[in-house]
Design a protein around this nucleic acid. Structure first.
Lengths: 371, 371
DNA sequence: GAATGTCCTGAATCCTCTA
DNA sequence: GTAGAGGATTCAGGACATT
């Protein structure tokens, strides 16, 4: 039997234009080979898991479990699976922009091989994420722990890469707490599950849209291009479209390509205001403290205090401040007084307004808003 | 510098007797080489993670993170780490009984290499278990997802092995539900943390007893022998003794050996009735508002209103909401609008469903019920 | 004694722009 | 390349002191 993706990519010219918002029907390695270098912002990959299932599995009441026994999930050996993985990862690395990131999802059957090969290919793991399934399939035989999670790896191209991470958006999504590496999300079922013409599930391992939603919201910007080399029923494309991201899918099986096209065509993008996420302070334009002094918002000569009124500093005409013999920037003086290695002067220093202390950061926000 | 365990085991006679309930002071590979074939029922291994940390890391308030920067965690390259891992795994496989199992714990830094090498050595993965930390260290710089879990691999010697799994005990421990592959447990802190004479933590990476408790209860029988080749402060020995299992520890650092001996000597075996006391409380799943947005229950762009329709807020893609120039969490915006110090957004905000206003808390309940 | 507040700490691959 | 400066950044829980 011919296994998936194990034919050598034919030498053929690379397209210069990215086939944006479209599905490439064909072998994932051959089709990736046609895409230009450093051209996509993110790759999301849900490769075959190489499940190595034995015989049929029966439920306690007698029904047979509808296992994933498709040909595309079968490999002769671990070495064959490794070769396949190495090949598609090499293409993925070539296509990915230097500041782009790659996500790969898998189960214990394959994720340890994929993870080691990612590291071998010099990808830099940023996090491993556990998708904790809210409603997993029980272990019918009672022989192991219920396999209730899958693992995702999030990697940059190297240690120094400046990847996208929308920290504030993730924090907002998690009730104002940092988003953790364990995500509790339901499996894909009900009306979200794509059915074929006969009413059966169109794909054995369709991923929930909520999973892709979180990934794309966290690690891409609107307009970014996401490549999914194992497109299946097009979950990545549907969510990308909804969130105003561009997408490219690669899929070998014609039946999947068909349902994916229909599905994405039926997906409506959110309107732009709904796509808003909490802005990262790091992406806001810089304001020099001196500007607030010049504009009279914090006149030279006024007093700054820390929140506990332990120190008070006077503002100089040039935007530097002075306190207890120290003078310099709001940050440097704050750090020196506290004996700390660094200090954010914007949140450390306050001004008295209507009997209440207000951080000077609030004045900066006013300034940015043009007030 | 000579790294741990990388010296070749000297050819020396193997003991015929197992050194039951004792600590072998020495290099883990050399000491394992002296143990007889197929002699232990379980191996629990907590090897170096090879963290590859850079410079110092400071907390927002100025404190310095006490990193694990010990020499025993430093390896020259991934290849060196792989060689080390291959060697101790080969000894582990030799020592393990044919129906015994091995557990290995790690983080994303090392677990993918360990997992792949376990498979290469023909171990058969039974489960990967996620230890979800109830109280992980935050990501202080806001650059990644909070690294809130570690991974354990549970393997038999081959596909056909008849390993021990105490299904009923696990189910009982989990409120009569099948024990899942994700375990929520607190990190080791407080009085459980072993201190040295100076009152500092004796070991940088001590594991919680609750973790070992669950593992030993699940996968060994009373009287079984558990080998821990990276014994540290002896958590495995202490829990084994408490649960009536036999143990062997290998540890190179004399200071760890000393505290481990004291600790285990002070541990009393539990009588059976007391053993269930350690069962952990189940954690109430917390639902973030963002989850309802991700899952499409409250799509981005929809409108929220207070019960008197005085204000209406629009939902952003990240689960934050916006109203009259304020944006933030459902709680924060509700509080700001009312001029209140705090606000329960779940009961304050409503959605219109079938011409009736319904608090979003009702949707949360639906979500919790799996609808 | 109970309630409240302060301080400390945990396996961490933890910044970015300009000169 | 490197050096320096700006300024962004934390959650839960236990110990211990204070009210």
């Amino acid at each position: 039997m011919e296994s998936p993706g194990r034919s050598r990519p034919r030498t053929q010219s690379r397209s210069k234009e990215l086939p944006i918002d479209s599905i490439l029907e064909g072998d994932c390695i051959a089709e990736m080979a046609r895409l230009p270098d450093k051209s996509v912002d993110m790759i999301f990959a849900d490769p075959p898991y190489n499940l190595q299932l034995g015989g049929d599995l029966f439920r306690p009441e007698g029904g047979k479990v509808d296992a994933c026994d498709d040909d595309w999930d079968k490999f002769d050996s671990l070495a064959t699976y490794d070769d396949f993985t190495r090949e598609w990862l090499a293409e993925a690395r070539r296509i990915l922009k230097d500041d782009g990131t790659i996500w790969v999802i898998g189960s214990y059957h394959n994720i340890y091989r994929v993870g080691a090969l990612l590291q071998d290919a010099e990808f830099w793991i940023l996090n491993d994420i556990v998708w904790r399934k809210a409603n997993p399939m029980p272990n019918f035989r009672g022989t192991r722990f219920t396999n209730a999670h899958e693992t995702l790896l999030w990697c940059a191209k190297d240690e120094k890469a400046r990847y996208t991470f929308n920290y504030r958006a993730m924090k907002a999504l998690n009730d104002d707490l940092q988003m953790r590496s364990d995500w509790v999300l339901p499996i894909c079922s009900g009306s979200e599950r794509v059915k074929d013409d006969a009413g059966d599930k169109a794909h054995p391992t369709q991923k929930p849209e909520s999973l892709l939603y979180r990934i794309l919201l966290a690690c891409t910007k609107p307009g970014d291009v996401v490549l999914d080399p194992f497109f299946g029923t097009g979950t990545t494309g549907a969510v990308a479209r909804r969130l105003g991201r561009k997408w490219i899918g690669i899929e070998r099986e014609r039946s999947y390509v068909k349902v994916a096209r229909q599905r994405i065509d039926a997906t409506l993008p959110l309107d732009e205001s709904a796509m808003t996420v909490m802005a990262d302070k790091r992406s806001q334009p810089r304001v020099a403290f001196g500007l607030l002094v010049e504009s009279g918002m914090v006149p030279a000569g006024s007093l700054l205090m820390d929140s506990k009124r332990r120190w008070s500093a006077s503002v100089n005409a040039d935007g530097s401040i002075a306190c207890e013999g120290n003078s310099g920037s709001i940050h440097k003086v704050g750090a020196t007084l506290q004996g700390a290695p660094s200090c954010n002067g914007w949140t450390f220093w306050h001004v008295e307004l209507e009997d209440k202390l207000q951080p000077i950061d609030a004045l900066r926000q006013k300034h940015l808003a043009g007030l």
